[in-house]
Amino acid sequence: MSNDMNQNKSSDDATPLAKLLFGWTEAKATPMLFLVGLILVAIGLFAADFVLAAKHMKHAYKPIKFSDMPMFYGLYGFFAFGFVVLCGWPLAKLLRKDENYYGDLEGLDADETSVDAGKEGK
């Protein structure tokens, strides 16, 4: 095992810089605040879209009529993302096989499970 890495389950051992940059992610309220924040921003963006449409400031691709519909991009992003992630369930069942399916990982050659293999070559 490399000395570079120590196994420690405690969450209080973040470096000062880490606490400064990302310590807020540990707060219990963060997930809910993040969700509410995203919803508010999304509402704001939809509202802005309607304002742009009302002021004729929306730019449409002539051959793609629906591209200037208010909320089109947001809804497209939401459903596209959801579709991709939901496809992950059947795809994982269909395509995911044992780690050594191709017989490449044998004994000490099981790279990527050894810290030493993470170094620059053996």
Binding site: V41, L45, Y73, G77, F78, G82, V85
Partner: peptide, 8 residues
């Protein structure tokens, strides 16, 4: 943002 919302 809406895609991120979908993730959350």
């Amino acid at each position: 943002v809406l895609a991120m919302l979908a993730f959350v």
